[in-house]
């Protein structure tokens, strides 16, 4: 069983297939660097919210959500480092702004 997994939800048409591959590799690399997990053991799934179905602040949304799950949990210091690195790499690869990204890392 994988200890760490990601479910990424994006607004339709915002992030192409090639970029998704890059993002998945980056998430797996960060997981290895911070939590020591083998990239092969870190599943990453992507799903799209259809245009006109996602809103933020009452307006059409351009926000992506990256939801990480960590079996067994981590300390808050590690979690914050983990989430910060994910934010930085996601913005760099996707070109989104810091206000177009929500990252979570929950203990399960």
């Amino acid at each position: 069983m994988s200890r760490v997994s990601f479910n990424c939800t994006m607004q339709e048409g915002q992030i192409g297939e090639e970029t998704r591959v890059e993002l998945a590799v980056a998430l797996q690399q960060i997981t290895q660097d911070v939590l020591g997990e083998s990239p092969d053991d870190v599943p990453v799934t992507f799903s799209d919210i259809p245009s006109g179905f996602g809103f933020r602040g009452g307006e059409p949304s351009t926000t992506s959500l990256v939801r990480g799950s960590i079996v067994g949990g981590v300390t808050q210091d590690v979690r914050e480092d983990f989430m910060r690195r994910i934010c930085d790499c996601w913005m760099e690869i996707s070109g989104c702004t810091v206000d177009e990204l929500v990252v979570s890392a929950r203990d399960v």
Binding site: F53, G54, F55, G57, G58, E59, T63, D99
Partner: peptide, 25 residues
């Protein structure tokens, strides 16, 4: 989506930009 944002912010005082509403068929 607008109503949910108004209600959430009115009840909790949270900034509007933090309210996400998604419809899922």
């Amino acid at each position: 989506a607008k109503a949910f944002t108004d209600i959430h912010c009115g009840n909790t005082g949270a900034p509007r930009s933090f309210v996400h509403v998604v419809f899922d068929e």
